[in-house]
Simulated scan of single mutants.
Amino acid sequence: MDPEVWSIGDLARATGTKVETIRFYEKSGLLPAPPRTARNYRAYSAEHLGRLSFIRRARDLGFSMEQVATLLALADRKDQSCEAVDIVARAHLAEIDRKLRDLRALRKELATMIANCDHGTIADCRIIEALAPRG
């Protein structure tokens, strides 16, 4: 096989991506469909490898599919200002900060529930009591 042509399995191994995920990215339009070989196999290029690596890294950083699509579209316009990229990244950072605040509040609540546990019987368990529906 030509070294510049990758099978879907080769691409999956090179990027640590499941084959099904690669197909999903193709169907969603994030990754362009590759040409087919004479035997009807997908023939990915180094360009596909780079784009898939970009998608994987963005997803690893928690960017949504919509944000990844936006970033890919912006990345394709090399001569444009990166202000739009900064806006997407700042919005994502704000969302991460919000989630961290929520997680800190959840942690505090759970720690309080655990601290109030006197290790008695389940009938008197403050954790179970806090989890039970009120009504």
Rank of each mutant, 00 (worst) to 15 (best):
111 A>L: 10
52 L>D: 01
107 R>L: 10
71 L>K: 03
116 N>M: 10
46 A>V: 10
65 M>N: 09
116 N>S: 11
54 F>K: 04
106 L>C: 14
115 A>G: 04
116 N>E: 15
77 R>S: 09
94 A>K: 09
96 I>T: 06
68 V>A: 07
97 D>E: 14
103 L>H: 10
64 S>K: 07
78 K>I: 07
91 A>M: 04
57 R>I: 06
112 T>S: 11
65 M>Y: 14
95 E>H: 11
72 L>Y: 06
89 A>Y: 05
49 L>W: 02
81 S>G: 10
95 E>S: 12
104 R>D: 15
116 N>H: 11
72 L>R: 08
99 K>E: 15
84 A>H: 10
114 I>N: 01
45 S>M: 00
106 L>D: 14
73 A>C: 08
100 L>T: 08
68 V>Y: 06
119 H>S: 13
109 E>L: 13
67 Q>R: 08
56 R>N: 07
61 L>K: 09
92 H>M: 01
76 D>K: 11
76 D>H: 11
62 G>K: 04
115 A>Y: 00
58 A>F: 07
100 L>C: 12
101 R>H: 13
56 R>K: 12
83 E>K: 13
110 L>G: 01
77 R>K: 14
53 S>K: 08
53 S>H: 03
81 S>W: 07
107 R>V: 07
108 K>Q: 14
87 I>M: 14
57 R>Q: 10
114 I>G: 01
90 R>T: 09
104 R>A: 14
88 V>Y: 02
49 L>V: 01
72 L>N: 05
63 F>C: 00
97 D>A: 07
62 G>F: 03
53 S>Y: 03
118 D>K: 15
100 L>K: 12
49 L>Y: 03
69 A>W: 07
118 D>T: 15
77 R>C: 06
88 V>A: 05
58 A>W: 05
92 H>E: 00
80 Q>I: 05
101 R>V: 15
98 R>L: 06
100 L>I: 15
101 R>D: 15
100 L>R: 13
99 K>H: 13
63 F>V: 03
64 S>A: 07
121 T>Y: 09
92 H>V: 00
54 F>A: 04
61 L>P: 05
64 S>M: 03
55 I>L: 03
94 A>S: 11
118 D>N: 14
113 M>K: 02
109 E>W: 10
119 H>M: 11
49 L>G: 00
113 M>F: 02
72 L>P: 06
87 I>C: 09
59 R>Q: 03
113 M>Y: 05
59 R>E: 01
75 A>C: 12
104 R>F: 10
66 E>I: 12
85 V>C: 12
47 E>F: 08
